[in-house]
Structures are given as C-alpha cells and as structure tokens.
Design a protein around this nucleic acid. Structure first.
Lengths: 189, 189
DNA sequence: ACAATGATTGCACATTCTGCAATTCTTGCG
DNA sequence: CGCAAGAATTGCAGAATGTGCAATCATTGT
C-alpha cells in the first residue's frame, strides 16, 4: 500500500515489494497470486462462522425480516471489529484509479456476497422462492458497499471513525426506496 | 468463446486466438487489453443515451418512483435488443470457473452501474440525499444481475428466450423484500 | 545430535502486455 | 489510372507476471 501510494500502483513491481519485505519474489507468489490480491486481501471476505450460525438458526421468516437481521449481523460484526478508515480509503482510492485493483476488489466483495447468500439459503430452507437468497444477499451488499464508499470518502473526521452509521443509513434508505409513498422527496439523516 | 469452451479459458493463448482470427497477436492487443475483456466486452456496458435522456427528463421524484422507472428503462432496452441466451450462459459459466474472467465481468457490470448512477443523480438533482443515486443504481443492478443469472442457468427452453420476465420477477421480489408485512413466508411467482 | 516437517528460495519457462518503428492496406482525388 | 495521405496491421524488443520443480534453509520434537 505504501509503495503504491508513493509511486502509483502499476509502477510498483513485485521485485520492489519483496525487496522491502525482505523476502524473495518467489515467496511473494507463495502468499499472493498477484499484487492486486495482496492489496485487497485484507478486507473481510466473510462473516465469522459463529455469527453466521446464529443468523441461520433464526429459521425461515419473511424476506424482509431476513434482510433486516442479515444487515444487522453485518453491522454488528463491523462494530465489533472496526476497519481502519485510512486503510479502507486507500484501497478505494487505489481501486478507483486502477482497473485491475478494482476488479480484484469486486471479486473480493462478491466472495463476501456469496457467503451471505449461502447463509440466507440455509436459513430460509428449500421452500424459499428460488433466487430470493441471492437477491437478499446482493441487496445487503449493495447497502454495505454504498455505505462504506460514503464513509471512506467522507472528510468529516468527527470523533467516531466507525462506518456503522453510514451503512445503517444505507439500510434505512433502502427501506425508503420501497416503502409506501410519503409524497416527500427527501428524508432526515 | 469457442476456444475457451473447447480447451478451457486459461489453456487458450492470445497466439491461438489471433491465429484463428487471421491477425497477428499484436493486433489483438490493439483491440482488447486482455483475453478477459475480449470475452466479456460484448455484454452491454450502458443504456443508449437516448433512453437515458428520456429517463433523466422525468425529473425529481420519490426514490421509489425513480427506481421503478429506472428498472423499467432497463427492461425496455432488454426487450428491444434481446441478448442471446446461449452467449450469456457461456459467459457466466466461464466467469464462475475462471476468477480473472469473473473479475472482468464484475468490472463490466460496475461500469453499467456507474452510468446508471450518473443518470439517477442527474435526474434527481443536487437536492437529493447524498448516496441515494448510487444506492438506487446499485439496487437496480442487483435485480438485473440476479434475474440474468437465473435466466442464463434456467434449463426450460420454453418458447420465448427473453430474460425480461426473470428480471421483472427480481424487481417484484425486491418490492416484496421491503413491503409491509404479510405474515406469509412465501409468495406466488 | 538428528530426523522430519515445513518454509523459503533459485531457476527455467510460458505468457501477457506495452512502446516504437516499419510496413501494408484503404481511400479520395487529380 | 496513379499516387499521396491517413489508417490499420505487423514485427520486434523488452519488462513484468505467474507457475512448476527441485534444492536449500529453518524449526521443532525426540
């Protein structure tokens, strides 16, 4: 990350990285299949199994309930193990400027999404409408992603540096999106 | 695509492809930055400008309305210029089995998403809650993606080969996701 | 001490991708 | 037709990625 900030991602070679790390280039490839994965690999790739189990144990419920509890699980985990704003910001910056990094990040996010979809499918059982678990997981990830993007690019360093309020706001907006009409175009934060 | 189906994507080299196409390898790279992009590049990357203009002209409205009209625009375009099921199926298959292709496809989708987000932002004006256009575009893409995935992997070749009903169903499920409670766990298709 | 296990490394090699300059192809016009 | 201007194609050189394999080095338990 440091080298990428200093020289630009695609000016950094694996030789440089491994030299700084004090290992051989070959060893680098033993741990990471590419520079891109090395950079985005620290972002969480799934919820902890224990949390997933608890979520699954909730059993079948209305899709809206499942979505709500899923997003709550994500937010809880986020609060328990808060990411560092600077690191997330750097990763997004890098991704927005470097297509290959962006691709790696999207792949990483989708791995997360797939693990969520599997948990939802397991919770709702085989009687759920096909495609519903995928949709719930995808929508939840949409909220997480937009929330994280806003958080990482928000300059106001006002005390708490947690992404939780941002993600929660995305979830709230999500409900507004499909909630019954209110004739208003705006809403309070 | 044919070579990838026959030999597996990562067994196919640019030399093979350019030989079959009757051009030099160098020419291949004049048109595509990579094999991956060559494969996923035929998927639509944005709505036609004319359709976007019409959508933007709708002016500010309740977020739910904007989402509905956005998904309708997407579905309309899909009906007007229907993708070939076999081609989409092949691309998804390839993507699910080859990480680099998957990454390229996600990147492609996100380009689409960004163009949607820009249109939504333009339509809703600067008074919209920040993050709302992004969220709407991301949620719309979630519906499109899950619908397309189900369509491409659906074996029932019953007459009409359009993905439209599948995407529409995803949109309908989307509403169910956040609609007022109904005490039921299932719903009719 | 020493054997066994795992981590690290060097080396060879195929492949991807990029500049740059040369060449070939196309097209419009006198 | 002939030919000049512009565009497309190509070859070449080279940097960098990524993988398989075998050798070496380090660690740990006995």
């Amino acid at each position: 990350m440091r080298l990428a900030r200093e020289h630009g991602f695609d000016k950094v070679t694996v030789d440089m990285i491994s030299a700084e790390a004090g290992v051989s280039p070959r060893t680098f490839f033993n741990y990471f299949p590419s520079k891109e994965v090395a950079v985005v690999g620290r972002t969480p790739g799934a919820l902890p199994p224990q949390l997933l189990d608890t979520f699954v144990a909730g059993g079948p419920a209305h899709p809206r309930t499942v979505l709500e509890e899923l997003t709550r699980a994500i937010v809880d985990q986020m609060a328990a193990d808060p990411p560092e704003r600077q690191e997330v910001h750097d990763i997004f910056m890098l991704a927005h400027g470097t297509p290959s990094v962006f691709a790696a990040l999207m792949t990483r996010f989708d791995g997360f999404r797939q693990s969520l979809a599997a948990a939802v499918a397991q919770r709702m059982g085989p009687d759920a409408d096909e495609g519903i678990p995928d949709l719930i997981a995808t929508v939840a990830m949409a909220a997480v992603r937009t929330g994280m993007e806003r958080w990482s690019s928000d300059l106001t360093t006002d005390g708490s540096d947690s992404p939780v309020p941002y993600v929660e706001r995305s979830v709230a907006l999500l409900h507004l999106l499909l909630a019954p009409d209110h004739t208003s175009t705006r809403s309070a934060p």
